[in-house]
Design a binder for these strands. Structure first.
Length: 209
DNA sequence: AACTCGGGGCA
DNA sequence: TGCCCAGAGTT
């Protein structure tokens, strides 16, 4: 039931938004982890501006763990919260070496123990690098999923459980960017543009126009 | 659950 | 300028 409803929304939203315009650029679990830490409270597009230099200058946990905070800050300046993120990157690299043999861990608990990695970021790494069914729930996914009636959860964890159940394994990724695009362009937190919405008729939360 | 952090995008 | 966030950490 929920699956059929979600499939319908996917089909309609995909024809409206098309393929994702931006996505995190990386080529290893380590790089993905760094890009995910940087992506908090900003966009993939912004992150992709700094990751090429970041990856070139700090290709390994060893190099990043020994980075000078000031130089790292300069390198990632241009995205939001760069001071916090520079600290998080260095501390995460040190923790990878100390606790995880220099490897990116594969459980949610271990990932969330890393500085700068919350539940949403941990789920991105789990889903993309480890093919685990764990839907990353950001503010857009949370709001749009509830409005479309795919979940009635009151917390991000409850919404994550519902949406993950609808799309097991890696299929979530086909849906994720659509929820985010929709949340950003039409289904906005304040004053959603329901009159332009491609699924207005089928949306249980649509505002009559 | 509410609050803080704190920089880029945009009207 | 002022207002709004594609979160995480702390209380």
């Amino acid at each position: 039931m929920a699956r059929e409803k979600a499939d319908f929304f996917i089909q309609r939203l995909r024809s409206y938004y098309g393929e994702p315009t931006t996505a995190l650029e990386y080529s290893s679990p380590f790089q993905l982890l760094l890009a995910v830490i940087l992506s908090a409270q900003t966009t993939d597009k912004q992150v992709n501006k700094v990751t090429p230099r970041l990856f070139a200058q700090y290709p390994t946990p060893e190099k990043l763990a020994a980075a000078h905070p000031d130089e790292l800050e300069k390198l990632i300046r241009g995205i939001g919260l760069f001071r916090n993120k520079a600290r998080a990157l260095i501390n995460t690299a040190q923790m990878l070496l100390r606790d995880f043999n220099g490897q990116v861990p594969g459980s949610r608990e271990e990932l969330m123990s890393l500085p700068g990695v919350g539940r949403k970021s941990a789920n991105v790494v789990l889903a993309v690098a480890f093919a685990r069914a764990s839907f990353p729930v950001d503010t857009h996914v949370f709001r749009v999923s509830r409005r479309l009636g795919l979940s009635q959860g009151q917390t991000p964890e409850q919404v994550e459980k519902d949406v993950t159940a609808i799309y097991p394994e890696k299929e979530w990724i086909k849906f994720h960017h659509l929820l985010i695009s929709h949340g950003r362009e039409i289904c906005k937190a304040r004053r959603p543009l329901c009159s332009r919405c491609p699924v207005q008729k089928e949306c249980p939360s649509s505002i009559a126009v």
